[in-house]
Simulated assay, not measured.
Amino acid sequence: MTPGFQALTEKEKETLRLLVDGHDAKSMARHLGLSVHTVNERLRDARRKMAVSSSREAARKLRAIEQRDAEYRGDRLSGDAFAVADRDESAAPVDASRMVRRIGWVFGGIVMSLSLALFALASWSGPTDAPAAPQSAAQPAASPETAVVETARAWLALVDGEDWNGSWNATGQAFKALNTSDRWAEVSRSVRPPLGAVLSREAASEEAVPAPPYGYRMVKFRTRFANKAGAVETLSLVREGGAWRVVGYTID
Rank of each mutant, 00 (worst) to 15 (best):
P3K: 09
F5R: 14
F5C: 09
E10S: 11
E12D: 11
T15K: 00
D21S: 06
A25V: 00
K26R: 09
K26N: 08
A29K: 02
H31Y: 09
S35M: 02
S35W: 12
V36H: 00
R42N: 10
R42Y: 05
R44N: 11
A46H: 05
R47W: 09
R48M: 02
A51P: 04
A58N: 05
R60M: 07
K61T: 06
K61Y: 04
I65P: 02
I65T: 13
Q67Y: 09
E71K: 04
R73M: 05
G74D: 03
D75Q: 14
D75R: 09
L77Q: 07
S78R: 02
A81K: 00
V84G: 11
D86A: 14
R87K: 14
R98F: 10
R101I: 00
R102K: 12
I103A: 00
L114T: 12
A117I: 09
A122P: 09
G126H: 01
T128Q: 12
S136R: 13
A138M: 08
A138Y: 08
E145F: 15
A147V: 13
V148G: 01
E150I: 13
E150Q: 15
T151C: 11
A152E: 06
A152M: 07
W155V: 03
V159P: 06
N165T: 15
W168E: 03
F175D: 03
A177E: 09
N179G: 08
N179H: 14
S181Q: 15
R183Y: 13
V198E: 02
L199I: 10
E202A: 14
E206T: 14
P212M: 07
R222K: 15
F225D: 01
A226N: 08
A226E: 15
N227R: 13
G230R: 00
V232E: 14
L235Q: 08
S236W: 12
V238E: 03
V238H: 02
V238G: 01
E240Y: 05
R245F: 02
G248N: 00
T250H: 06
D252C: 02
